[in-house]
Design a protein around this nucleic acid. Sequence first.
DNA 1: GCCATACTGGACCAATTGGTTCAGAATTTG
DNA 2: CAAATTCTGAACCAATTGGTCCAGTATGGC
Lengths: 207, 207
Amino acid sequence: MARAPEFNRTHALEAAMKLFWARGYTATSLPDLLAAMGIARSSFYASFGTKRELFREALELFGDRTLAIIEKDAKRLPATALPRAFFNTTVLEVSKRRAKFGCMLVNTVLELADVDPPLNQLAAQKLSSIENTFAEVFHLAQHSGEMDSTRSPRELACVVMTLNFGLRVQSRTNLPRQALERIIDNSLSMLGLAASPISPQEVHHVV
Amino acid sequence: MARAPEFNRTHALEAAMKLFWARGYTATSLPDLLAAMGIARSSFYASFGTKRELFREALELFGDRTLAIIEKDAKRLPATALPRAFFNTTVLEVSKRRAKFGCMLVNTVLELADVDPPLNQLAAQKLSSIENTFAEVFHLAQHSGEMDSTRSPRELACVVMTLNFGLRVQSRTNLPRQALERIIDNSLSMLGLAASPISPQEVHHVV
DNA sequence: GCCATACTGGACCAATTGGTTCAGAATTTG
DNA sequence: CAAATTCTGAACCAATTGGTCCAGTATGGC
């Protein structure tokens, strides 16, 4: 005895996420969001609370998806190939338009560090989850002799994350995709992590 | 036959820059700016035009200062020591509070990429000037045999900039300074650019 | 002293911000 | 059909946004 339940909430959240991802928190207005989500102002108020709460949900969604990507790759790839695989999926293998968005977590950290510490902390926490995954994988690989042990897993993970951050910044300048590829190649080979490029069918899409 | 001319305009601009640097463009309101600059609303209007124009001036100021740092170091240091010197001055050797601000150019690129393309372009252009300086220095060093020539100067400069970007992002998380030092050490040594740390008296302050 | 100038402070503006409310249309189930 | 429920559309709010203007005050040189 009712109407269609909880319409396309996830769908709407997704749309909101993309907008936040592209424009950041402050520069995205409520009307912009409503238009992108395709819902009325009052529906928005009922389903999500405030703009800030919506952003938190979007951030959480983005973070969990990114984490899922690396965890999936961690199971099926050798540790030395993991950084390259991660860069491939998140930096290169997205549609051209979204590639320019960079990483929503990184964008958030830079935008809200001095503006909204709690949200900044949430983003930072998701990022450190990613770093932890790298560190764990490196740790196992070093114990099994699969990977060189001259540097600690944590330190390696830190450097990989630093590189990742840098690539995300590069993505938001107008750098052509080809240039990004070269940077990835060079960085990884200089770090001694230059596993051969992944074959096309192993590449999957993201977000 | 008049009052004191053009008061502390540069002083005011400096204060504005610091605020923009810390909070970004959109999150900094006019009242905030006026309070920090210590001038009245109407004086601001007369001296600078719009908020956007003020931001452009601040961005220009920040960019030129950063460029000055690297150009100065480029003259007095061997090429292989340049990246570390740059990281030292810009990432480590600033007051703790400002270290958390990261780099205003990087912050701007991430914040305004999809919001204000012209301003984004200005920031990107300043960043590429820095990259060019690195590339030129590397080029000369390779020709004089001072530096290993296995990789092209441009590629090297790209990687160094990527690392730089990554460090600036790390700066805005709540990473302790000591951790940043370790990341710098590890990255540079893995890149084969691990010149010994600079002696204290060679370090100078920035901005 | 007087006058020209530089600045202040506050009033004011239209537009936009995020948030709230509610009458009514739409729709699904009984 | 009727009842229950979800959503819309628009009106409305106070607060804030960036920007404009001007009367008045301070401060110089004559």
